[in-house]
Simulated assay, not measured.
Amino acid sequence: MARHLRTQKQIDDFIEKVIDEANHHASGVAQIIDPLSQAVLGHQGFSRLEVYERNGNLARTCWVTVGQNRWVFSYAYGQHVIELRQHSTRGPVVFSFDNQTSAAVLRQQVNRL
């Protein structure tokens, strides 16, 4: 089930939680989360953020709506990257982000959303 985050505080709290958890369990993506989230949330077509909710707790998988398109960001444990998928958690992987992703490449991928 997905929970729609409606307020800036809800969004900020979620991003802070994801960064904190990444610092402990996924250090290879911890530094890219903030610039990635800022770029996505700042996209002119951004309209909605939903987060996977399990047993009343928010997980780290999230769906964003940009224009008419829905995208999924989820951590891939085996590859140690944040995957960008089209439409659903089982959609095709469009791009993978980690701490080595340059700012230019990050902007390029977000602009394609």
Rank of each mutant, 00 (worst) to 15 (best):
M1A: 06
A2S: 00
A2M: 12
R3M: 04
R3I: 10
L5I: 08
I11T: 02
I11L: 11
E16L: 01
E16I: 01
D20R: 04
D20H: 10
E21V: 09
E21W: 12
A22I: 08
H25C: 01
S27Q: 08
G28F: 13
G28W: 13
G28V: 14
A30L: 00
A30F: 02
I32S: 06
I33Q: 03
D34H: 02
D34R: 07
L36R: 07
Q38E: 07
V40E: 06
G42A: 02
H43A: 05
F46P: 00
R48C: 09
L49M: 11
E50Q: 06
V51G: 01
Y52I: 10
E53Y: 08
E53C: 03
N55D: 14
N57S: 06
N57Y: 00
V64S: 05
T65W: 11
R70H: 02
W71A: 05
V72F: 08
V72M: 03
S74T: 15
S74G: 11
Y75L: 05
Y77C: 04
H80V: 09
V81I: 00
V81G: 02
V81M: 05
L84W: 09
L84A: 08
T89I: 15
F95K: 15
S96I: 08
S96G: 05
D98P: 01
T101N: 08
A103S: 08
A104V: 03
A104I: 01
Q108S: 12
Q109L: 06
Q109W: 13
V110C: 08
V110M: 05
N111H: 14
R112K: 07
